[in-house]
Amino acid sequence: MVTLDRSAWHTRSAEQTLRLQALADRLYAELGDSAFPTGRSNSGLGWIGFYTNSAGIAILSRTPRAEKFFIDPTGRSWGRERAGDGSFEAIDDALVAAPTVEVDLVLATEEPPYTLLPDGSTRFDGPSEVSEMLDRLLAEPFAQHIKGIDRSQNPQLAPVVQARIDRVAFFALVDSVHVRAVRLRGFVRQPSAIWHEDALRVAAREGRAEIHILLRGGETYTYSPHQSPKARKYQMDAHTRALNEILKAAGVESPPVLSAADAHMGLVHLFVTRPQLEKLFAQRDPRILSVDVNKAMAEPAGKLPAVSG
């Protein structure tokens, strides 16, 4: 993040916007190829954000066009794709080791509905508008940095498309309205599910436990708010069906009604009996990312009332 003009924080006008853009353009011209052309931002209040390399840092250290610069503290909140699951960092690290990387582009389609299968895979229950979305994506100026898209390899029109990208494309795709996520090929949100054994100890001691189950999510999973209402509903429906299946298999006959936020995330909070919890742990459903227990219950306390079911 670079401060171009501290005094600009206090006012905003069309004239000032043009002046600040001219300042930014002059700085970008000085930086040349050291300032990536994609992933830029302009506050309109005297500071800009962009990606640069070590040569760019050297230029920023001596140029009078930058009053101040520092690592952008807000960068993780920008972009449509940064879900906090390590997918962004995985691509970033891979691009340090190689100029291009193989990725899966999760296109920002509305369709199709989908199902999380018991083996952990995703079944798309119909075609999606992949061709139209790809046409819009490949018409973008940065699309020359996207290689390897083969439409013939996607006859079912699934919204996850394989591609090879460089860093310029990556920084653009993070903010693109045409994608919901960009993931390194083969990336898994978390390689191994987390099953907290404390839950079993609480249930053995108290006869029941309050637990939280979080799903791994399907191929198109994202917790980004940048989803169409229809796509968001399909994600909520897929999570709700999967959680209900998992809980009923564990003997929970009446799974709780999920809030919209929990359904979107794939999260459920509930009390379960000891037999239900033991069955849940014995099954180890691949769709589950983690099972945790209410930490307050993990400490010895007064005996909880009995629970039927």
Rank of each mutant, 00 (worst) to 15 (best):
M1C: 14
L4V: 07
D5Y: 10
S13K: 12
T17W: 07
T17G: 09
Q21P: 10
A24V: 09
L27W: 06
A29H: 10
A29E: 15
E30R: 13
L31M: 10
S34W: 03
P37R: 01
S41E: 03
N42C: 09
W47F: 10
I48R: 04
Y51T: 08
Y51N: 09
T52Q: 02
T52D: 06
S54W: 14
A55W: 08
A55G: 10
S61D: 15
T63V: 11
T63C: 03
F70I: 11
D72P: 00
P73C: 10
G75R: 11
S77G: 14
W78Y: 08
G79K: 00
R80Y: 12
R82E: 00
G86T: 13
S87D: 03
V96N: 03
A97C: 11
V101G: 03
E102Y: 11
D104K: 07
L105F: 02
V106S: 01
A108F: 04
A108D: 08
E110W: 13
E110C: 09
P112C: 04
Y114H: 12
Y114T: 01
Y114I: 02
L116E: 05
G120W: 02
G120P: 00
R123L: 09
S128W: 01
V130A: 04
E132R: 14
M133S: 07
L134W: 07
D135G: 13
R136P: 11
R136T: 12
L138F: 11
P141S: 12
A143V: 09
Q144V: 14
I149P: 00
S152R: 09
S152W: 04
N154Q: 04
N154T: 11
N154C: 11
Q156T: 07
A158E: 15
A158R: 05
R164T: 08
D175S: 09
H178Y: 11
R180K: 08
R180H: 00
A181L: 04
R183K: 03
L184R: 02
Q190I: 04
E197A: 12
E197P: 09
R201P: 06
A204D: 15
E206V: 00
E206P: 01
G207M: 05
E210Q: 14
I213K: 01
G218D: 01
T222M: 05
Y223C: 09
Y223M: 13
S224V: 02
P225S: 02
K230C: 05
A231C: 06
R232M: 05
K233T: 15
K233S: 14
Q235Y: 02
D237F: 08
T240C: 13
L243C: 05
N244Q: 15
N244D: 15
N244T: 15
E245Y: 10
I246P: 02
I246V: 14
A250F: 11
V252F: 10
V252W: 01
L258Q: 06
S259R: 13
A260N: 06
A261E: 13
H264M: 07
H264F: 08
M265D: 06
M265V: 13
V268Q: 05
V268M: 02
V268F: 01
T273N: 10
E278S: 04
K279T: 13
F281A: 07
F281P: 03
F281Y: 14
A282L: 15
R284K: 15
P286A: 06
P286S: 04
R287W: 09
I288S: 03
V291D: 06
D292F: 06
N294Q: 06
N294V: 03
M297L: 14
E299F: 15
P300W: 07
P300A: 02
A301S: 14
A301L: 05
G302L: 10
G302K: 09
L304C: 10
